[in-house]
Amino acid sequence: MPQSQELQDLVVQVRRDIVRMVHQVNSGHPGGSLGCTEFFVALFNEVMELKDEFDMDGKNEDIFFLSNGHISPVYYSILARRGYFPVRELNTFRKINSRLQGHPATHEGLPGIRIASGSLGQGMSVAIGAALAKKLNKDPHLVFSLHGDGELQEGQNWEAIMFAAAKKVDNLIATVDRNGQQIDGATEEVLPMGDVAAKFLAFGWDVLHLEDGNDLSQVIAALQEAKTRTGKGKPVCIMMHTEMGNGVDFMMHTHAWHGKAPNDEQLEKALQQNPETLGDY
């Protein structure tokens, strides 16, 4: 299924935004951001039903929660480029007096953000609460969430995973970014998690596999498929396999760029691999 040039252009531009943002302040998390670029582009531009204006309650629209808040660069870029706030504001990322905090925050009223995240493992519970609110409000829209795989080492996730299945929270689509990396190394070295999909299944979820989370067509297809599986008594999990650092060759196949910014030379190289498409901020 070929995707429009427009979405492909957006993917490339978001990658540029990510590396430029973290380079500018010499901090931030490019690896996971790049790995999830296709997911964000698909979700916010093809999959979710969104109102034009942001409001905190998000009634009568789909809503999204980012649990692994450190990949804020991709989140901010997507929100800005979808019109939630001016693209030039990306220039303030991680700087003083900015709404674009190192990790997402509601504190300064940045449109698009409904919960602070950064301390890991809390987003699934919040997404469940919002999904329950939608049911109480008889709002047929969905709640989406994204979680790192390393993040699943936090115990609160498993409280939430147990609850969501037990209470049939079937208007929730939780995606796990299975990039196999965390700060100290490969997840299989730091704390092997076994078969994560099997664990979700055992807890009573419906699980989809997304083999290449960096293939835009596959991502859109998986998210659309997940939507068809909602409302059937089970929460839905997408096990999304991605490559951390995708789209910048020297950031791929390593955990080294989890939370490290490129230097001037590296930035130049990264930008050469991703030529400007929609205009830099």
């Binding site: 998000g58 409904r114 919040v126 997404a127 469940i128 919002a130 999904a131 609110a133 109480l136 409280e159």
Partner: peptide, 27 residues
């Protein structure tokens, strides 16, 4: 319908409560 028994899982309870406010409820 306005009560949620979360079991012995207080961390999850706090997160669910935070989420329920999004949509206008007072948990």
């Amino acid at each position: 319908e306005r009560f949620f028994q979360v079991g012995i899982a207080e961390a999850n309870m706090m997160g669910i409560a935070a989420g329920l406010t999004i949509g206008g409820f007072i948990p």
